[in-house]
Design a protein around this nucleic acid. Structure first.
Lengths: 102, 102
DNA sequence: TAAAGTACTTTGAAAATTAAAGTAAATTTG
DNA sequence: CAAATTTACTTTAATTTTCAAAGTACTTTA
């Protein structure tokens, strides 16, 4: 078992809802607000706040359009976001693996 | 990609410091306060609060003794805690895997 | 015996999380 | 066709969580 600093875990990702958002976005090219909302069962307000946080950290990019007279907001994972998510998983795995093996 | 509710992720575990604590405790029979503190690089106050939270949820058990006139607090993962941690990992893996495959 | 260290716990401020309420537009209903 | 409802979000504000500084109760060292 090796030492590690828990602060190395990316806390922009390590929140239940943001982990879920990132997991959805890593698998799709683009996703609409409503699509994510339904995938992860989030409330509008909550989702909005956390998407904004991910955007502020440049983990996702956002485009807003009107389609058939309706507002549509699309989210896309950035390269930064993809790297961060991959690192996050590796870090978590290493913490779990380095500790859970006898 | 399947739907999931992010609220299914155990939030007693899904905190950086508590994930780290649980990862340490799952690998050892028992661990002292100071051992955990050094393993994960936590401050005393913060560690104390989160160990208490894990204890309140019966994920860990605590024994306090004096050894060579000094207080020694030992922590042990419970069956409940072990199950919760294993479920937590499975849930996270499924969220990540179900979404990250193209 | 005074000062410093150890092993924690308590506390309170700051940050994060959450859902209710709000906005602005479109659509449906009576 | 005006009012009510719905849609797609955003803002807000109350609650919860996180964190480290300060506190407690000793023990050890000088």
């Amino acid at each position: 078992m090796t030492d590690f600093n828990y602060l190395e875990i990316d806390d922009v990702i390590h929140s239940r809802i943001r982990t879920a958002i990132m997991a959805v976005l890593i698998s799709v090219d683009e996703a609409e607000f409503t699509f994510i909302r339904e995938k992860i069962n989030a409330t509008d307000g909550n989702l909005s706040v956390h998407l904004k946080k991910l955007e502020e950290h440049k983990y996702i990019s956002v485009t807003k359009k009107f389609i058939e007279r309706k507002p549509v907001t699309r989210y896309k994972i950035t390269k930064t976001g993809r790297n961060a998510f991959e690192d996050y998983i590796k870090k978590l795995e290493s913490i779990i693996r380095s500790n859970s093996k006898k």
